Computed example of a mutant assay.
Amino acid sequence: MSKIRKKKIKKTNILLGFICVLLAILLGFILVTSYKSEQKESRHLSEIADDQQSGIEDYEAVKERAKELEEISSEEAEDTEDIKSKNTEDTEKTDTAETEDADKTEDTKDTKDETAAAASGIVCWGDDLINGEESNTYSYMAVLQKLLTDNGYNMTVINKTLQGGGTLSMMKMAGVSDETIQGYITRHQQAANGAQLNVTETGIRDLTEEQTTRNDMDCIPVIFMGYYGGWNHDPAELADQQEQILNTFQNKNQFIVVGTRPMDGSVTSEALDQVLSQKWGEHYISLADVTAQPSSTYEAQQAMAEAILQKLQELNYISKN
């Protein structure tokens, strides 16, 4: 082979070797660059992943907090609703109670008005304490009739009093059974234990047919009894005897009871009033509270008539037609 050819081959090999070295350097550079880029990208992706994880955790925390706030709001809303519901219920109950009370009051008023209209008059039982012709002008019954008429009330006052009679005779006149009346007499005798009793405590007056005939059972009774005795000086027994007479009337809810101490002073006005006012409540009139005059005087009869009229008006027993 010629020397020239050998030189060419040698140059070519050197060139190829140089090229290979360059290629190897280039490849190394590329590999290093790629590795660095991959490392950088890996770090970036890791940071992104960390941020996402943190974001997820923050989101979960926010979501959990929102859920707690929602539950709290829901509970507060329920409490508020319960309070509103309770207030509404209480208001409804109050309104219902007030309506029922108003209805009851109206019903009671209507009942009283109807009964008052149905009553044929006012009847006075007991003793008028004034004898003879004077009673026609000065007794509380005569005065009451005049007051009713003068004030526009078309009501007749009926006289069922028994002059000087005891309560046993009054019960007999009202139609209370003999057995019931005898029961009182027996108790009086037992309590006396052999002592002498006033005739009014054991005896019953002879009564006429006119006296025992009842034409007043649809009237409003005014009971004034006990002045002459017949109740063993026991206010509780007097109240029971008054009730015996009241039970003979058609309407047992409308009545007036007037109390005065007995003639013999065996029971004080205070002791009598304490028992009878407790028994009869708003239906009771104490003569001692009305006047300081003796019950048999004109002044006391006038005061009692005025007190009875006022009580009839207060209880809505009478109305002007």
Rank of each mutant, 00 (worst) to 15 (best):
T105H: 08
Y153A: 03
I158L: 14
G55A: 10
G230Q: 05
G175R: 02
K36R: 14
L147V: 03
T180H: 02
I181Q: 04
G165L: 06
S34T: 14
A236T: 14
K3F: 07
C20Y: 10
L129M: 13
V267P: 01
K10W: 06
S42L: 10
I158W: 05
D107T: 14
Q196R: 14
D234W: 01
D234M: 06
I158P: 00
V222W: 03
S54C: 02
A292H: 09
T268G: 07
L312I: 02
E100K: 10
R187S: 12
E98K: 12
T96L: 13
D218A: 08
S295G: 15
T91N: 13
Q190K: 14
Y298P: 00
T33W: 10
E41W: 03
N321Y: 04
T202H: 08
E38R: 11
L69M: 10
A118S: 12
E237Y: 04
L26E: 11
T94N: 07
L129F: 14
T186E: 15
D127T: 07
N159Y: 01
D90V: 02
H283N: 12
D128S: 12
K11I: 11
Q301A: 06
L309N: 09
K279F: 00
K146R: 13
T260E: 12
M225V: 05
Y138H: 07
S277T: 06
N251Q: 08
G226D: 06
V62D: 13
K104V: 12
V32W: 09
S169N: 04
E237G: 00
Q244S: 13
D128V: 06
I25F: 13
N136Y: 07
T80K: 10
A239L: 03
I245G: 04
D289N: 14
N136D: 11
G259N: 04
Q211W: 03
Y35D: 10
G28C: 13
N131R: 09
K252W: 07
S296G: 10
